[in-house]
Every structure is written in C-alpha cells, then in structure tokens.
Amino acid sequence: MIGTRFIAVLSVVAGLAVWELIGRLSPPVLFSPASAAFSYLWHQTVTMALPVAIGGSLATLAAGFALSAVVALPVGFAMGRVYWVREMLHPILTGIYAIPPAAFIPFLIVWFGLFAHSRIAIVVIMCFFEMLTITATGAATIDRRLLDVARSFSAPRVRMIGSVLIPASLPFLSTALRIGLVRAVAGVITAELLLSPANLGKLLLDSAARFNTAGMLAIIATVALIGLAVQQMLLWVERRVLRWERP
C-alpha cells in the first residue's frame, strides 16, 4: 500500500518535472514551465485578483448546484419509486439528456441574457440531468427486502422513511451530488468563458489575449484542482456519514 502511494506521489512529481522541462524548451508563446505558472498564481493571489475570481466562481457554482439539486433529487426519487411518474417522464428525459448541455447555451442567452442569471442557468442545465438519472436509478434499486422487513414488523410510515428509506438512499444520493458537483464546476467555467467573460473565465481569457501561456496553464490547473477538491470533499463526507457502506 505504501509502495503504490509512493509511486503515485512520484508520478505527480515526475509530471510536474516534465511540464517544467517542456515549458523551458518550447517558446513561451506556446507553452510555459510550471514555475512560471506558479509565479503567476502567486502574483494574482497577492493582488487579490485570484481569490476574488475564485469566490465569484464558487458563488455561481453554489447557486446553480443548489437550485439543481433541490429539484433533481425529489423528482428523481419520485421517478425511481412511482411507476407512472417514471414511465411518463422517461421518454422526455431520455430525449433531453441526449442533447449536449452546451447546445442550450444560445437558447439560455435568449432567456437570461449574458450575465449572472445566465451563468447560473448553464450550471443548472449542466448538472441537473446527471443528478436526476442517478437518483432515479438508485431509488428504483432500493432493496425490496429492507422495506418488506420493516413492513412485516408493522413499522409506522414515519419510522419506515426515517430508519429504512433514508439510510438506504444516502449512498446513491451522495453519488448523485458528487457527480453533479463535478459537472457543475465544468458548467461554471464553460459559462464564464462563453458568455461575457467573468471571474476565472475572465482571468483565463485575459491571459489568452496576451499570449500569456503561463497564466492560462495556471488557471487551468486551478480549475482542475477546484474540481478535484470538491469531489474529494464530498467523498470525505460520504465516508464519514456512510460508515456502514464500506469497511
């Protein structure tokens, strides 16, 4: 176990070294070394530009993700547990799910304009259907025997929901939230680049306009780390809450 972890760390270090090497060898207009990207990040942090941009992006993320989850989880649950809801919604959702979320962007611009509202709408579209499908699939596959046992012992409805249905649903609900959140991060950066540039997207496009590849790589790395961080955070919460799921 220590061996594989050591290799993983080694791999990350080696990757950074390769990045540095390629960056030093190639002209700065095309690619920059890791050290240049770090110094850009440091500079932007000192001038407060980066923290403000990250804050703005995270606010959009939170708003869109919360709106999406509040609708997607109950509807997904209803789809998984109630036969006629599932069958009525299934064809429509399969159809809408087949449309790439980005294709909605011109339509959303017509409705919500180019600024904050539209950005939130894009985040909602990007993560809504993912969370809906996962919740519906999960709710449909809750072990019947668990519910039957509770019914055999004539558990009251409240008790049944509180001590059987909710614990049985937590694993797939947390999966839905985690995957939805990663999609939402992608939605935020897409919106900030394709609409009027804002926050992290603006920093990225400003760097692009100046052929500042160090800045671009630094922002890409920041976006990647934000995605990884939100995912790890939810995984950590999952492991704490769902002790019975995994050893």
Binding site: V185, L204, S207
Partner: peptide, 11 residues
Amino acid sequence: VVTSVAAIVPI
C-alpha cells in the same frame, strides 16, 4: 476527468 474541457479550449 474532473477538469472541464472548456478550460483547456483557449490554450
């Protein structure tokens, strides 16, 4: 896999 491809588009 968690990095949005949109972020890589400019470069």
